[in-house]
Nucleic acid binder design. Sequence first.
DNA 1: CTGAAAGCGCTAACAG
DNA 2: CTGTTAGCGCTTTCAG
Lengths: 344, 344
Amino acid sequence: MGWLSHEEDCVEMTRTRSAPTISQVAAAAGVSRSSVSRAFTNPHLLSEETVKNVLRIADEIGYVPNHTARALSTGRYANIAIIVPDIANPFFPPMIKAAQEDADNSGFCVFLGNSNEDPAREDQLLARFLGQVEGFILVSSRLGEQRIRHYVERCPLVLINRDIKGLPRVLIDSGPGVSEAVHHLAELGHKSIAYLSGPKRSWSNTQRLAAVKKAGRELDLKVSVISTTTPSYQAAREVSARLINTGATAVISFDDLTAQGVIAGLSDHGLVVPRDISVVGCDDVLDAATHPSLTSVSSRSAESGRTALSILLDFLRKGNTGDIRFSLDTRLVSRETTARPRLP
Amino acid sequence: MGWLSHEEDCVEMTRTRSAPTISQVAAAAGVSRSSVSRAFTNPHLLSEETVKNVLRIADEIGYVPNHTARALSTGRYANIAIIVPDIANPFFPPMIKAAQEDADNSGFCVFLGNSNEDPAREDQLLARFLGQVEGFILVSSRLGEQRIRHYVERCPLVLINRDIKGLPRVLIDSGPGVSEAVHHLAELGHKSIAYLSGPKRSWSNTQRLAAVKKAGRELDLKVSVISTTTPSYQAAREVSARLINTGATAVISFDDLTAQGVIAGLSDHGLVVPRDISVVGCDDVLDAATHPSLTSVSSRSAESGRTALSILLDFLRKGNTGDIRFSLDTRLVSRETTARPRLP
DNA sequence: CTGAAAGCGCTAACAG
DNA sequence: CTGTTAGCGCTTTCAG
């Protein structure tokens, strides 16, 4: 690690020259400032010739309309903000990416906020963005309902994976996928399964646990539930003994990370997946990139981002859209960590 | 999947009420507008009483300074933009997260741009952000040097993993880590190793290939190089036959994703890692979350983001900083996919 | 079709 | 310490 300095190269990054303004273009083109403005925003109000001329001069000078000044004048910021609890959690990037791309195509810039799972920080981010965006996408918000409603009053906002009545929200419903997973295991011949639980307060975990129990009941399987303190790889690895003690021949884990922890933990006890025990994850964030590749419940993370964005843009264009609750269901992606149980 | 509408709940998200302005606060508090402004930006210029009074009234009314108006007036946007080729590539999120967090702590908001590996789109993003940010962080930029210099003239900019003389840049140098990996393999007793190459035009790949060759020469190992069309899991999986044919007992792969592909590919041929062949990845994006956990070269992604941000903020505060070339070196993270070679 | 004038909400000299 | 006066760069009536 080190610093190198070549003094002779210091021409760059000295002082940024201030951007050309509309006035300069107007002067150079011999037209009024409003004409320049119109050439960019309402060319059809101008003679073809004027437009062409202005645009040419502008290009020469290197003029680019100032986003900020325009926003102040029109009230249209052409910016939105996405706030997530943790960018580094692989569940979120595909969502951000999808929303980003669509926003981009509609001419919007996107601010990204990382609340770090902290409601206070989330609140602060919202406040900071408030004066410069036309809308928010709040993902898995940890903020109190009161505060969320506070912001909704001042700026359009759509929630992802947070179910507040009356607010537009898109929810990824793990139910169907988890249920499918249980059926899949039952078909393979498993009679006793375990669910490794995630955070108690998590909306997703609640959905998943309920789905496992319901499907287990219907298929007459024994269902054991094991909890970890925190849904980490390490924590999951450490509960493997308890998992084994349940006598389950298959385990459904809260997410892919904990599923990998389970696989490692079982291996610590000499058990091989899927030969000795089958494992299924949730969220499908690893694709097939592990070996053996993980059977998992798809998360549709990208779609949720896209959907939230389109709800937001729709609202910005058309106004009131009523109480929107968009539910995305999920399905099982069957790969290599599930198999028939070993005969006793 | 479905839409539910409860008409009775439509109170929300109708029309956003326009935000209170400084004038309203001034009127309510019985002071001039500048005093309100000062209460927020230079409270020390005001009597304690006035400040308290203004702040109280502002809070009551729900006034929050308008970021955009302030920016237009001061020229300080308090925004920066980070542009990456692919948010969904696990190499980038830790970097974005780290930069985001530090920016946040310095009162900056961050725009996120995803160029999708497309220079034209990257250019467009730059242009769109230009009028509303104080600086850029360009990660693994695919843009031509001319264009980058064009933007540098108008706005401070720091590069990550792109080495352009005279521009501030932070580079993650895989050299030391890769070299360490080769030494590690040699110590385990390997005599013949292979490098699975990444994109030809990639700065990182060039570094890595060179380091493997150099260390291999020094340690008197046989080094074979295999290339894939694209550095994907699948592509890596498919070259395993060629890898095996080299007779190498260990392979170093361009990144972690391809390393996992290699492991799967070897397994397709009945070979078990690390019993039959050792594998090491690069970037260390998987932590220990796979089984067996991958030996990899650390990427220091987060640190690169933090460093780039601090260079940028330093520049914004202090001006010209000369030719900065900050190099972060790497090291080997030894885990479970490397072992002694099998005896012939 | 084009220009003049007012103003978006805030800050920053400059007086007092 | 506080009020007054100009703008920041752009859009947008309103006239012509």
